[in-house]
Design a protein around this nucleic acid. Sequence first.
DNA 1: CGCTCCCATGGGAGCGCTCCCAAAGCTCGT
DNA 2: ACGAGCTTTGGGAGCGCTCCCATGGGAGCG
Lengths: 342, 342
Amino acid sequence: MSAGGRRGGRPTLEMVAERAGVGRGTVSRVINGAPHVSPQARAAVEEAIAELGYIPNRAARALAADRTDAIALVIPEPETRLSAEPFFLDVLRGVSAELADTDMQLLLMLIRTPQERRRLAQHLEAGRVDGVLLVSVHEGAPLPDLLERLGVPTVLSGRRSERERMSYVDADNVGGARSATEHLLGRGRRTVATITGPLDMYAARCRLDGYTQAMDAAGHGVDVSLVAHGDFTEEGGRAAMRELLERHPGIDAVFAASDVMAGGALHVLRQTGRRVPDDVALVGFDDSTVARHSDPPLSSVRQPTEEMGRTMARVLLEEIESRTTVRRHVVLSTDLVLREST
Amino acid sequence: MSAGGRRGGRPTLEMVAERAGVGRGTVSRVINGAPHVSPQARAAVEEAIAELGYIPNRAARALAADRTDAIALVIPEPETRLSAEPFFLDVLRGVSAELADTDMQLLLMLIRTPQERRRLAQHLEAGRVDGVLLVSVHEGAPLPDLLERLGVPTVLSGRRSERERMSYVDADNVGGARSATEHLLGRGRRTVATITGPLDMYAARCRLDGYTQAMDAAGHGVDVSLVAHGDFTEEGGRAAMRELLERHPGIDAVFAASDVMAGGALHVLRQTGRRVPDDVALVGFDDSTVARHSDPPLSSVRQPTEEMGRTMARVLLEEIESRTTVRRHVVLSTDLVLREST
DNA sequence: CGCTCCCATGGGAGCGCTCCCAAAGCTCGT
DNA sequence: ACGAGCTTTGGGAGCGCTCCCATGGGAGCG
């Protein structure tokens, strides 16, 4: 009945061309910012576009040009559950902000089951995204290798090990942990312990490294009895704290490698009648809601999460654009947020 | 050099047809589950698909069929910042799970600036998504009306008011608040106060309603001096708690309309030397990380967030599929998670 | 046994774009 | 003044799919 196609009958490139009195090719060049267009032609086309309210058809473009103008943010589920919650949302914010003045679309893929991983692989093989942002990767995660094999441009958040080859954006875990520990030492604390994360995670090892470096530098050497191992859970934090108190009842400071563990430690300290920060000073890591809302609020090492997201997006876009296989490794610095626990 | 197209040279529908010894039409019918295909033809096509590892080209399909097989999850930013954090991620999980065995893609759009909203409108006008899930809407939010006007199938999480017309999936805020209050009363508490959220939010009004209903039913009438207004922030919770204590030093129970506010209240209670739950029992709302990690852990009303996500996705898919404009309104029940604060 | 009707099928047309080639119009150098 | 070498332009071909029409049978009915 009505004019035009099935749905909407929106303006096409061809209509723009006619209106502007030029050929399809010229309109296409203008839209894509390609060279070799005279100023007059460009002006005419732009006017026609504005008048018609023309918006390029994504599908047609994707089909003709064999690209999708979409990137995927892939989140292996187990991660999200843990410390990653606020982290993830902030990263997302950054990514989204960076993409805002691109016309890249952001696809979200939560991968929980092997079945979903297969589907992801299919998606990727089918070339449905131009690139992938992969959040929080374990040491032995299968996804990075898969992506590498498929040759899909990829940026990781965090690295799997010291010698990560793929592009990544990471926070300076070592530096953060070091400054947290230095802060504790600087406050005159003598017996500074640490609660580590699971050491099969690179980030956890880095945080332990930072602690060690600071202790070394202060001439305290490395007293392994001041190191207790947690697993980034609250319960792990409690257990570790109990262990530490048993070994050193006189502990007067603790650096926990995550806020959640610090929360557990806090609980145990209070249970055992110790006051924070008077008797024991406590620093966490992540600057999460837990840190802000605990009582007392926890000093914590903040990662520039949103900035990490922005950077990841930027690096990925570059990689896609340049069609190179140059890997970029970015480490952003952390800072220490002081609150009442120290 | 190599055979095939630019990138990949993956199998096309035409190749499948040839291999199966049928026409393009038949293959298309098989793929789309259309009727009028003989069992033999179907089998032959399916075999050819498996052998070739054929995956339909999304762009071509979108172009030809004028649909996108993608839905957008739209998040107006200001919301996310507040109580929505864990909420959002759980909803996302549900949506993702529900979409997992569809071949719908999930696009994520964070809307922070008016400029971004304009871009969203463009996207929608350009028909780049088949439907929209809209998270956490304010009373006067512009987005729902925009979507309605554009005629894009949409499902809201939460409703803007009693008489929301668009499709939505909401939690039973009234019921949750009522049962929290009943729980407090059931424990023999006499003076049960409440800290509300901002009353220009429908959800906050509902939670107050629930409290009122429970108090009424218990024959306590409505004592407005037991109602203090917060704004879903911790600071707001503190202020409200102080106010309440001033008016009623003998308060022995508080229902806070959010965990974050409950956290603030908890702080004030402790500051004023009251023990929780011995002197004052406390219930929050949302069952967030704050509730789990505070000391003592807070009893809280849990919303079935993941289920809400699933339901939203399901409702949206139905709406898209059926091409109807029938609105669906779903209210899922909440449950009370008991912890040590009561 | 002949006719109608419907199921199953093949393939043309076309979705809206990009890519690229050929042609046309310039500028410049000699 | 004329050719070489640019920039600028138009439009054909084709991306891989869906839609739909025309065709060929087979079943069912009178």
